[in-house]
Design a protein around this nucleic acid. Structure first.
Lengths: 251, 251
DNA sequence: CTTGACCCTGCCGCAGCGTCAACGTCTTCA
DNA sequence: TGAAGACGTTGACGCTGCGGCAGGGTCAAG
């Protein structure tokens, strides 16, 4: 057989066959006078084995190992490992599909908001009575960001807190007022008297259950500075004071 | 923020961040006088989105598309496609795991035989009374090879036929005799009178149900030549005659 | 002044081939 | 007989999503 026949018979490409030669998986056959490779059944058998193993999901290096020690003992080992690996992959896939479905279900409500975690997306989508002021939008962005940034073990509790707050008409109304006060500071100076007012209002929106780690936070932390940079000076000052209030409260 | 902080906050590596810059996924921020990149919250938000999308399984090119048209419409499309893709992957994974398990269950019996298709492995493993003569081993190799080489739609029927044959003591005995006759030809000349005898015996082992496409086979086909090369001349001649007998019978 | 922890750019490497390129060879048909 | 077209040869680059290294510069603390 020449390489094309061999490849066709086993159902791979000639390129793959040559690749296996290159990696030493498949022994190079004799050449004809013209340089063409001349294959025999032995090669077809080995090639078929390679293909079967790769179809199972083994890497070519593992295939080489298995083919090398013809004591098939290693094979069981490798296959068991592989099965565990596939199990992990399957679980991960299921996870992702679940998240995807949640996201798709909730997607209609907030196309401009971009992809948020499925849980938050559902929450925000369900609460259509939210304010649309600039600060409100930014706050949702920040919440979404915090939720990806924070350690996984705090996430669930945090999402639950947000859900609670959104479920309470009083809390939503208080938040709306705080957003309005902050929006009004867009062009103000940092020493504007309304800064303190806005800070108090904002602090009042954040119940102890939400954001309990505020107590351990340094209001001049590096990451927070990045956050302040994103706001007008007076707004940043208000948020800074809010955090100071929270730190005091929770110490 | 500098790149390390940004990366830590979102939970990626600095290398990944630079990679996203390189691909144009994440806009390059301003530089400080010393050349360091200086990030703001905007970057953290975008980076977090990128991460979320990639965790869902989108490729970086798709992420770029989604981030580009901020009409979130494309997103739903992409995600739906993605879900279908993931579904396919999940099915494929399950397939592979099933094959793997069958293979692992049947593995104890035939370590030296190497990896065969799960079904055949189970069959061969279950029939411990098979001959171990050289020709018998080669025949099992060939059956295994044919099973990978043949089109998928014939495979099931073929495996079933082999199973039937192995289940019939008479058939197994006849095969054992045929193997013995062929083994005896290892050093014979192609015009040895025993060649015809062996060919008849071998043809008798192959019932019409097994290998029905023998009728359409050209005994001097390229692939078969490779098979003959693997046998002693007299053995090859016997197999050739066997095929001729089958072709006659089934025409 | 040194040490250590950052930052910079840029390039190679990974799996498993696909896909040219630039060429030789064999068969076949007019 | 010559040209086309289907094969074969080696070699090298392309793809994904970064990791890791080389070979520097920058900055704060001891």
């Amino acid at each position: 057989m020449r390489i094309g026949e061999l490849a066709a018979v086993v159902g791979v490409t000639t390129r793959a066959v040559r690749h296996y030669h290159h990696l030493g998986l498949l022994p190079e056959p004799e050449r004809r006078a013209n340089g063409y490779r001349e294959y025999g059944l032995r090669h077809a058998v080995v090639l078929a084995r390679i293909r079967r193993l790769t179809e199972l999901g083994l890497g070519l290096a593992e295939v080489r190992d298995v083919l090398a020690d013809d004591a098939g003992k290693d094979l069981v080992e490798v296959l068991t490992e592989l099965d565990e690996d596939l199990a992990r992959q399957e679980a991960a896939l299921r996870e992702r599909r679940a998240r995807l479905r949640t996201l798709l279900d909730a997607e209609g409500g907030m196309p401009a908001e971009g992809p948020v975690s499925p849980e938050l997306a559902a929450l925000f989508a369900g609460a259509s009575h939210l304010s649309d002021s600039p600060m409100a939008v930014k706050d949702r962005e920040i919440i979404a960001f915090l939720e990806t940034a924070m350690p996984a073990e705090d996430r669930e509790r945090m999402v639950a807190s947000v859900g609670e707050a959104l479920g309470s008409p009083g809390a939503v109304a208080r938040a709306g007022e705080a957003y309005a006060l902050l929006d009004a500071l867009a062009d103000a100076e940092p020493d504007d008297p309304r800064v303190e007012e806005a800070a108090v209002a904002l602090a009042g929106c954040i119940p102890p259950g939400l954001f309990p780690e505020a107590g351990e936070l340094d209001p001049d932390d590096g990451f927070l500075r990045a956050f302040y940079d994103d706001l007008a000076p007076a707004q940043a000052e208000a948020v800074r004071r809010t955090l100071r209030i929270l730190v005091e409260e929770r110490r």
